[in-house]
Nucleic acid binder design. Structure first.
Lengths: 120, 120
DNA sequence: CTCATATATCGAAGTTCGTCGAACGACGAT
DNA sequence: ATCGTCGTTCGACGAACTTCGATATATGAG
C-alpha cells in the first residue's frame, strides 16, 4: 500500500465523474469531504457496509479523480483533490448544492415505472 | 405507445440523475437537447448504435426525469423537461459547461489503473 | 384491410457494479 | 520475530447496464 494510484485529471472524462457520483454512498462521502478537510478513512466506517465495500467506493472516487488518498503510517486520510476544480470548474459545487434525496416522498410512494405493463 | 411513463420529478434522486448522465451516449443526447428545442428521435440515430440501444438510452434519460417524450402520430420528439431545473437548479448547466472528454490525451495514452499490478 | 414506417419491448449475451467474507500487506508495538 | 490494526485486494454472487437482433405496437398511406 502506502502509495495508491491516482489518475491524471486530464485523463478523466466527465462521464466517469458522473458515474462515480451516481451512487448514494459515494455522494455521501463527497459531501463529508466537501468541508475541504482531510478525513480519516475510518470516519466513513459504518455498520451498514462491509469494510471491503467501502474500500471499493473510495477507489471509484479516487479513480475518477475526485479524491486523494494519503497514507500516514497505518491509517489513511481522504480529501478532495483541489485540482479537480480546475478540470471541472463549478461542477462539484453545483452537485453538492442539490438535495440528494427525493424531498420526502408520499408514505407508500407513488410513481414508478408502470410496473410490467398497464394493458397489453 | 403514444403515452410513455414519466416520473414525478419529486421522486427522482440525485444519484439517479447522475447515473443517467454518466454515459457518453446519453450525455451527447442531452447536449443536443440543451438548445431547448424539441428534436425528433431519429435525429439521434447513428450507424454506431442499434436502434433498440438508442431506445434504451432514451428511456434511461426519461426515467431519470431529464427528458420528455412527446408523440406525434408515428414519430416522437424529445426535449428537456423544464421542471427539471426546478428540482435540480443549476445542475444541468454546470454539467453541460464541462468539456466532456479529456482534452486530447497524449497519442498513445498515459495514465491508467496500474494495469494488473506493478510488482507482486 | 394491408403495408410501410417509426419506435418500443423482449430475450439473450457479455460487462460492470455493489456487496460480502476471506486472505493479504504494511506498519507500529511488544 | 510476532502480533494486532487498518485498509486493500481477491473471488464470488446477484443485480443492473449495454448491446444486439427479433418481435410487437401504433399510426398514416394505399
Amino acid at each position: 500500500m502506502r502509495q495508491l494510484w491516482h489518475p491524471e485529471l486530464d485523463q478523466v472524462s466527465l462521464a466517469r465523474v458522473l458515474t462515480a457520483l451516481g451512487d448514494p454512498v459515494r455522494l455521501a462521502i463527497i459531501r463529508t469531504l466537501a468541508d475541504g478537510e482531510e478525513h480519516t478513512r475510518s470516519d466513513f466506517d459504518s455498520n451498514e457496509l462491509a469494510q471491503s465495500t467501502l474500500s471499493h467506493h473510495v477507489k471509484m472516487l479516487r479513480e475518477a479523480g475526485l479524491t486523494r488518498t494519503r497514507w500516514e503510517s497505518v491509517r489513511c486520510f481522504l480529501s478532495l483533490r483541489p485540482e479537480f476544480e480546475d478540470r471541472f470548474p463549478g461542477l462539484l459545487t453545483a452537485i453538492l448544492d442539490q438535495a440528494a434525496d427525493p424531498p420526502a416522498g408520499p408514505p407508500v410512494s407513488a410513481s414508478r415505472p408502470p410496473l410490467p405493463r398497464p394493458v397489453r
